[in-house]
Design a protein around this nucleic acid. Structure first.
Length: 616
DNA sequence: CTAGGGTTAG
């Protein structure tokens, strides 16, 4: 009870009213035994095909063989495993713990987590001996079922029965916490485990925490933890390096990632296909094709074959870059090399066609998938729906949306977001409202992204009042508005002529400690310029410099046009000089405005000065 | 040697 963990465990124990038998989780449609399975099991257990029957002293070994075979090949369905389980229950003497554990492991392999949990529950009610391995396996199932709380209940049970949780048990729980976005709790638990010497940490537990740090955007801390484990004599392995390399690649710090690749190779840790795939993805995002070619050559040299992930990354990169033909070729290539493309691969290709607006081709990909027996999933549909919406073909998009449930697919907020965006952009407000209600009725929760879509759509259609009320609703729901949400609203308010409200909202975000971004400032400058409030616009320019948010080409052009529009020719001139000094150029719109001004005949000295300055 | 935990694709 000295440690955090113990406290935690026992708290969980008391908060959950059932310790044992284990609460049933989710649905498990375990049907009655089938004759066929029974017959197969029967023939297997008496099998003359056993390599050497004389070496099988009793039925336990046969069972072991069966289990080994099954955990290698996998049960065809959870029922099979349950058959084996029932058979095991009737054996005398009872099979060893290890055999039961193997059975659970086989279920985990099939991802039938809730079935595994109910088997465990039965084991408990039949008082079949279990050990810490059994518990760890079941904790893992709970974590996969997004019930880390039950995982901790089980940890309490481990203590209660006098078992000692080990590094695997804790690693499983840490991973469970991290997968539930509870990284801080995971980190705290980990620190306490080390502090109180509750575990002898190994690479896997470190890797789990490192992965959590990477997932929460703390790659530099992950790097520090890597150095720490080296210092403690726990050598990082290929997973440690791959995890950080992947994170660096996603942070666009591919050169640092390449540095780590060199480092691991120096230390004799061999990179694998995952390491290379992560790097290739990072390079793809930066369009560094030459480096990609080099890495593929390295892989070839080290006899590491690209797998379907590697190919899918490449297909996706080419497709997003508009090179759909190359993407098609890559798919051909991967098939030739025995890596079968799957739904992810084809969805990436389809996305490429959608981006190019080639919807017929995108739809053809869907047909190809069907011909190959690859089932399109929710994301496939969302990509296609988004493609149709972008082309303003919202009716086709709606048809696809309505087709989804017929295929057993459930639209996500993302799917609805795409449809709603399409409806707003085609000004079909009643339907937008209808689908919004439908989305909520399906139990889908609003998130920041869908809110941005809605706010943008409402503002686009001049419904700023409705947008503001949704904004307040968001805040009361505990959704923390991101700066881009403010950008949408401020822009909408200005467009609607509500300068005071726009100004208020801007000050509001400052009060909340939110940092305006370049877009915020540009929107403010644009809004003030439109209203002839040039001084306020200029003050924003000074403000952004103070806040280390340097103005860009858009900032200057907006302000310069604002000056000209308001006949402040001298100010415009000064700003043009300043802009040029910063290495920016007048954009098309400013240039054409300037060109028009050169034709104006007026006795304004500032205008004459301007004309003199810019007259060819 | 024998059961449980870790890294990659939209």
């Amino acid at each position: 009870m000295k440690t955090m963990i113990m406290k935690r465990a026992f708290t969980s124990c008391f908060t959950s009213n059932t310790l044992l038998p284990f609460p049933r989780l989710g649905t498990n449609n375990i049907t009655a035994t089938t004759t066929i399975t029974l017959l197969r099991l029967h023939s297997l257990s008496q099998s003359p095909t056993c390599p050497n029957p004389n070496h099988i002293p009793n039925h336990l070994t046969k069972l072991q063989q069966l289990l080994l075979e099954k955990s290698r090949v996998g049960f065809d369905k959870p029922d099979d495993a349950l058959q084996v389980f029932d058979k095991m229950l009737r054996m005398k003497p009872l099979p060893r713990v290890i055999d039961f554990n193997q059975l659970l492991a086989a279920l985990v392999k099939m991802k039938h987590y809730s079935v595994a949990v109910s088997v465990f529950s039965k084991m408990c009610s039949f008082t079949i001996p279990v050990n810490v391995v059994t518990y760890s396996t079941v904790i893992n199932c709970c974590c996969h079922l997004k019930r880390v709380d039950y995982g901790f209940t089980l940890l309490a049970a481990i203590f209660k029965r006098g078992f000692v949780p080990n590094v695997v048990t804790y690693t499983t729980l840490l991973r469970g916490l991290i997968s539930q976005d509870k990284f801080l709790e995971a980190e705290l638990l980990f620190k306490n485990l080390l502090k109180h010497n509750q575990v002898e940490p190994n690479a896997v537990i470190f890797n789990t925490i490192i992965n959590g740090q990477c997932k929460t955007g703390n790659t530099s801390q992950a790097m520090m933890l890597l150095r720490y484990m080296e210092k403690k004599g726990c050598m990082p392995d290929v997973v440690t390096y791959s995890t950080i390399i992947d994170s660096l690649s996603k942070d666009r710090l591919v050169d640092d990632a390449l540095g780590l690749l060199a480092e691991m190779s120096d230390k004799g840790i061999r990179p694998n296909v995952i390491t290379y795939s992560s790097l290739i993805q990072g390079l793809c995002n930066l369009n560094r094709w030459d480096d990609i070619t080099q890495l593929l050559k390295d892989m070839d040299k080290h006899k590491i074959s690209p797998d379907k992930h590697t190919y899918s990354i490449l297909v996706d990169a080419h497709a997003r870059d508009g090179k759909v033909k190359d993407a098609e070729y890559l798919i051909e290539l991967m098939i030739q090399r025995g890596q079968n493309p799957n739904v992810v691969t084809y969805s990436a290709l389809m996305d490429g066609y959608c981006l190019r607006g080639e919807l017929d081709k995108a739809f053809a990909v869907l047909r190809t998938m069907r011909n190959k027996g690859i089932l399109p999933n929710t994301q496939t549909y969302t990509i296609l729906i988004s493609g149709y919406c972008k082309k303003m073909k919202v009716d086709t998009a709606i048809t696809l949306l309505e087709e989804m449930p017929l295929k057993g697919l459930t639209p996500t907020v993302e799917t609805y977001g795409t449809i709603l965006d399409g409806l707003f952009r085609t000004r079909r407000l009643d339907e937008a409202h209808k689908f919004y209600r439908k989305m909520l009725n399906q139990g889908l929760r609003l998130d920041i992204v869908i809110c941005s879509t809605l706010l943008h759509g409402l503002c686009l259609n001049g419904l700023v009042v409705e947008a503001m009320s949704l904004f307040h609703k968001m805040e009361s729901c505990g959704l923390v508005p991101h700066i881009s949400i403010y950008n949408i609203l401020i822009h909408g308010l200005f467009k609607d002529g509500k300068v005071d409200k726009a100004r208020d909202l801007f000050h509001n975000l400052l009060l909340k400690g939110l940092q305006p971004d370049l877009k915020t400032y540009n929107i403010m400058i644009h809004g003030f310029c439109q209203e002839g409030l040039l001084e306020e616009a200029y003050k924003i320019l000074l403000e952004m410099e103070e806040h280390n948010c340097l103005p860009n080409e858009v900032t200057y052009n907006t302000l310069i046009r604002g000056c000209f529009k308001n006949k402040m020719y001298h100010g415009g001139c000064v700003l043009i000089d300043e802009m040029v000094a910063h290495g920016f150029k007048a954009d098309a719109s400013t240039a054409s405005m300037l060109f028009d001004l050169l034709q104006v005949k007026e006795q304004d000295p500032a205008l004459l000065a301007l004309q003199k300055k810019f007259m060819p």
